[in-house]
Design a protein around this nucleic acid. Sequence first.
DNA 1: GGCATGGATGTAATGTTATAACATCGCCCT
DNA 2: AGGGCGATGTTATAACATTACATCCATGCC
Lengths: 149, 149
Amino acid sequence: MPPNTSPAVVLERAAAACTARGLAFTPIRQRVLQLLLEHGKGLKAYDLLALIKAEQPGATPPTVYRALDFLTEHHLAHKIERNATFVACTQENHVEPSLFLVCPKCSAITELQDRSVMQALCRALAAAGHQLDNPEVEIGATCPNCKGS
Amino acid sequence: MPPNTSPAVVLERAAAACTARGLAFTPIRQRVLQLLLEHGKGLKAYDLLALIKAEQPGATPPTVYRALDFLTEHHLAHKIERNATFVACTQENHVEPSLFLVCPKCSAITELQDRSVMQALCRALAAAGHQLDNPEVEIGATCPNCKGS
DNA sequence: GGCATGGATGTAATGTTATAACATCGCCCT
DNA sequence: AGGGCGATGTTATAACATTACATCCATGCC
């Protein structure tokens, strides 16, 4: 996979994945994913709502929350809990758990897959009698751009 | 340290730490920490507010948020971002980063220190050009009690 | 003593994030 | 045609958090 997959390609993959699984990739859902992809960094639900509203004045919170629920449920987007933002998933293959590096300064999100960290983590969890719950692990980490400042 | 340090001991340690650092461990702050300790698992700010209000009817959101800000700023408590709960810190020595295991079912919080996981994590972050931001890393992990169900 | 200072708290209002509940639409299937 | 069902529209409200400004009170200084 190229370092930065273009929004168009990701969208197309998402459409294909939905078709394959019998899911409805409706215009709203598609548009929300597109906005997330175009924006790049995490977007808040109400920012998204404002963008949608510009095109579709009747939009309300449920409009975007429902689309986001769909996208996150089907692993086309992720919710970053720590700052209540949403980000498009750009990993083709989402069987492996990912680390999400969230920059506290600029809110940029970097999705990172690292087998050895995950193994160490799962081992430690198992030793404590726990079990990794969801494959999205958020880490607060200053990004390269903000590290200097 | 014994496996479960008693609330009284932790409170006393907190009071000592504040005195040593010239901080005001006021009744409200003390009471909030005490409630967190007694409760054991994560408490939401408004649950805490309800408890405080029972004793002090004039309490409002800022009353508890200010106490929580104080406690988290001075590492006497932690905020669990993923479900907006707060938990007392029970580790005596908070120089080392900790993992916070958050059970998605029952919201129990387990604080875990594991050097090897942290080292693996920091190595992976460094390789990606990032730097660990805060020493509190949250992991969604089903707890031993909920694992069966 | 008088009084300025600054941290802590009181108080009111508001901002931000998320969901509940119910109505309606449109498609597919028979 | 009509039933079923998933998606969407619509209204209201719940849940979480902050801003802004007023007040209080302990301390230190004149």
